[in-house]
Design a binder for these strands. Structure first.
Lengths: 227, 227
DNA sequence: GACTGTGAAGCCATTCACAGCT
DNA sequence: AGCTGTGAATGGCTTCACAGTC
C-alpha cells in the first residue's frame, strides 16, 4: 500500500472517528477496538481497519488502539495539527451562525475576518471578529494570509466571491451557496448544499410511504417507486 | 429497469438538477440537453441521462428535455410537490439560521415550530415561527402533524431529542449534531456534519502541499501522502 | 482468546459507446 | 445531424475471511 488514492468516503469517516475518539478520551477510555469505534460511528469494523490501513499500522493485534495516539495520528492525516486561517463571506443568518460555529473553531478553523456588502452589517463584530466591507476582501484576506474561504452569499453572487477569494490567494473554498462554482484546479472546492440534504430525506420518505404522486394517464415510472 | 435500487448519489444530483432547471426557467430557456445540464452542475452528460433513466424517459431524442416538464418530474420524484411540515429543535445560532433559511422554505420544507430548552429564548419568534419550550415538543409536533424534524442541539443532547421526535411521530430526521444517532428503522435519518466537510478540505490541502507532518523516527505512512 | 492488517471477492456506481428516434 | 436511452465495460469501494500478532 505504497501511494494509494484515498477514497473521499474514507476521509469523511476519519473525521468522524476523530471526534468519536475525542469523546472516548473525555470518558477516560485509553484503549479501543475497531469494533467499538465502528459501533460508535455507525460503520463496520472492517471498514474502520481498512480506512486506517491506508495510512499505516496504528493498532496492536490482540489489543486494539491507543485512543490518544490514534487520534493524534488521524489529526495529522487530516492536517489538523495547526490552525487554518479562515475567512467567511456573507454575514446573513447562515453566515453569522457559521462565523461563530464552535465546531469549526474547536477543530482548528479560525475565522479571522467576515465580509459583507451590506453597509449596515459592516463594522459589527461576531464573537470578536470584525465584519469588513466586501471591497476589502482581497486586501484583508491577503494580509491575514488566509488559506480557506467560506462562501455564504446568495447563489447569484457566489461565483464572483469565489473569484475574489482565488485572487486573494485562498487555497480552499467551502461553498454553502447552491451554485456550481468554477475555480482553478489548484484551488480545493467543497460544496455543502443544505437543501440537497433535506431533499434526500424527502425522497426517502416519499419512496417509503408510496406517496410519490402518480401522473394519471402517463406511463412514467416517476410516480411508481412505492415500496 | 423495473424496480431498481436508486443510488444515493443519484438522488443528490437530482436535487441539483432541479435547482439548475429552476435557474434555466428563469432565464427563459425552454429546452435543454443533458450536456448543458451536465455543464451547469459539474457532472458528465452520461451521468445526467443515467440518473434520469432510473425513473423514466423524459426527453426527446435529437432534441433534449423540456425544462419545465423535466423539473416537474424531478420534483415529483423527490417528493416535493406538496410541503413538508417540519419542526426544528435547538435555537442556538445555527438553529435560528436554519429556521429562517429560505432555501428550505422555497423547496417546500415549512418549519412550523422551533423548540429550545433555554427559557430566555422561549416565546421569541423567528420569522413568525414561535419558539416553544422543549417540554412541549411532543405535544406541539403531534398537533402540527409534522413529518420532519431538524436537530440543531449539542451532541450530548442529540440522542434524547431524536428519541422525543420519534415518540412525537416524526418520520424523518435531519441531524446537524456531530453525533451518531440511533433511530428505529422506520425513521429516515440524514446527518449533516459541517466539520466533516471543512476537514475534508483540510485533508486535501495538506495532501496537495505535501505539508502533512512527518513524525521523525516513525515509519508511519501517515505523513507521507504528498502528491 | 482477542483483535489487527490485508488480499481476494463481491458489489455498486460511473463511463463508454452505440443503437434508436426526431 | 443531434441528442436520448441503455447494455456492457470499467473502475472503485466495501465486505469477507483469515493469517499474523499479542
Amino acid at each position: 500500500m505504497k501511494n494509494p488514492k484515498i477514497p473521499e468516503a474514507t476521509v469523511m469517516r476519519l473525521s468522524t472517528y476523530s471526534r468519536y475518539l475525542n469523546q472516548a478520551l473525555k470518558r477516560g477510555i485509553t484503549t479501543i477496538s475497531s469494533g467499538e469505534i465502528a459501533k460508535g460511528v455507525g460503520v463496520s469494523a472492517a471498514q474502520v481497519r481498512k480506512d486506517l490501513a491506508y495510512f499505516g499500522e496504528f493498532g496492536t493485534r490482540g489489543v486494539g488502539y491507543n485512543v490518544r495516539e490514534l487520534n493524534q495520528q488521524i489529526l495529522k492525516i487530516l492536517g489538523l495539527t495547526s490552525p487554518w486561517v479562515t475567512v467567511l463571506v456573507g454575514a446573513g443568518n447562515l453566515g453569522r451562525a457559521l462565523a461563530t460555529y464552535r465546531g469549526f473553531f474547536e477543530r482548528g478553523f479560525h475565522i479571522r475576518a467576515v465580509f459583507d456588502k451590506d453597509p449596515a452589517r459592516v463594522g459589527q463584530k461576531l464573537d470578536g471578529v470584525e465584519i469588513y466591507p466586501v471591497e476589502r476582501l482581497e486586501e484583508v484576506t491577503r494580509q491575514l494570509g488566509a488559506s480557506i474561504g467560506i462562501i455564504c452569499v446568495p447563489a447569484d453572487q457566489a461565483q464572483q466571491v469565489a473569484d475574489a477569494l482565488v485572487a486573494a490567494g485562498i487555497r480552499g473554498i467551502l461553498n454553502f451557496a447552491p451554485q456550481h462554482l468554477m475555480v482553478p484546479e489548484y484551488v480545493e472546492l467543497r460544496n455543502v448544499d443544505l437543501s440537497v440534504n433535506i431533499e434526500m430525506l424527502s425522497f426517502s420518505l416519499a419512496w417509503r410511504r408510496g406517496l410519490a404522486q402518480k401522473e394519471p394517464g402517463t406511463d412514467s415510472r416517476a410516480g411508481s417507486l412505492a415500496r
